[in-house]
Design a protein around this nucleic acid. Structure first.
Lengths: 240, 240
DNA sequence: GAAATAGTGTCTTTAAGACAGTATGTG
DNA sequence: CACATACTGTCTTAAAGACACTATTTC
């Protein structure tokens, strides 16, 4: 941005800006996302991600956290910017940009979801990190998705797949204490492919991100596994 | 976004949106970025990335491409969205969000840079992919950087470091034909660390991204290396 | 021929995959 | 005791790093 002839655009109509939050969790070993039925046009009766306009006095991250609080009753969860969607015709009501965020929570924190909201299973029709829109299902039926939100959720899956191998995001989808097999289940659900158990074990234990609690599972019908806890790395970021 | 009480915000003042473009190239085996001296306040005489307001009828990517064309005379270069910066006080004139893009060009396409523009060397004060602001230098002197643009450039370096090992971005900084050592120089400049030559060779030749032209370097004072060309992968995205 | 980098071949090291075998809970 | 998964140890395989050696150009 700089002072130049473009400046007079400030007095012209300019785009509106919203945030949309893709709140993901793991359920039945599959990624799910929270969507809400739209009561009116556009896209009446279709399902949309929770979102809202960015206020003049809040940052984008604050706006996303506010949406999460107001529409899902959640606070203090993993929240990260995803991408800004700017197709000219993405909202038929006018020019609306959307800064998409994604949030990750363990299923234990989504026991009661607000009325009108649905936890939809994410169906990924591509492999690897190719990317593209996904389909959403509830009780086996495909849900109609509003706006470009199917692209947004698709990009979340793409981002998670690219990130889970070197950034500690898998833990965000699990409760405080978890077994190695549960963690592997998260990785497999995100990546959409089975993982070699032995090397996953070794890799995780060698990563230094896990700290064993002395405790074990109870009542599992077989030898109980040790429960681990996530230990955040010393400094932020990835430092190879 | 959805129809709810928030809708009346549409009639309230809402943020302006700009795009800023971080145009990077390689010069003297170091990453450089194009910045422009600001003639007036705010940040008068400091250096800023080229940018401009997003028009009501263009996508974000079109806006970034337009800025690149108007302010650097470039067309058809690698261009990708980076991040959207939304600090409330990032522009003292008012609430202005900025969708940052980064572009990559070979130095050969930046022979003549516009007057008022400077190709500044990027000084990275951190290692790995930790991230954070960078410093810019021209002729050894540190340049004052306007707005949050030092953070933007820092995030470009962070993104490139995370991406260069599995996505074909290194080639965008080289001319059509290049030697393996030149390609290694690009990777080393981006990563900020030396790379094992033997394994880099093997890795690159095994990647299938290079196709040898029969031609060789000329007049280099030693055995000339073969010139390679970049062959884009079959499908988009990364598919492990 | 000296200097400098290109390019080849091979040994070592490290991480992943495969798999056998033991351990320890529940029923 | 049967069963299921946890956990350990070892062999194999694949990729990276190290390094020695030959090749080819300019000066």
């Amino acid at each position: 941005m700089q002072a130049d002839p473009d400046d007079d655009l400030r007095r012209h109509p300019h785009p509106f800006v919203t945030v949309d939050v893709c709140l993901c969790t793991l359920h039945d070993l599959a990624l799910h996302v929270l969507v809400q039925r739209r009561p009116r046009a556009p896209f009446a009766d279709a399902f949309a991600l929770p979102g809202g306009f960015v206020r003049i006095d809040e940052t984008l991250e604050q706006a996303a956290a506010r949406v999460l609080r107001q529409k899902a009753g959640l606070d203090g969860v993993f929240l990260e910017q995803l991408f800004t969607f700017g197709r000219v015709d993405r909202d038929p009501r006018g020019r609306v940009l959307s800064v998409a965020y994604y949030a990750l929570v363990p299923a234990t924190r989504l026991q009661e979801i607000p009325t009108g909201s649905v936890l939809a299973r994410i169906d990924v029709p591509w492999t690897g990190t190719i990317g593209g829109a996904v389909r959403l299902r509830a009780d086996g039926d495909e849900l109609p998705v509003a706006f470009d939100h199917a692209d947004m959720v698709g990009m979340v899956v793409q981002r998670l797949r690219g990130k889970i191998d070197y950034a500690p995001v898998g833990f965000e989808l699990l409760p405080d204490r978890f077994t190695l097999l549960e963690l592997q289940g998260v990785h497999e659900a995100v990546l959409g492919t089975p993982i070699n158990k032995d090397s996953f074990r070794r890799r995780m234990l060698a990563s230094g991100l896990l700290v064993g609690t002395g405790r074990r599972q109870r009542g599992v019908g077989h030898r109980p596994a040790e429960l681990f806890r996530f230990r955040p790395p010393r400094r932020g970021g990835h430092n190879p």
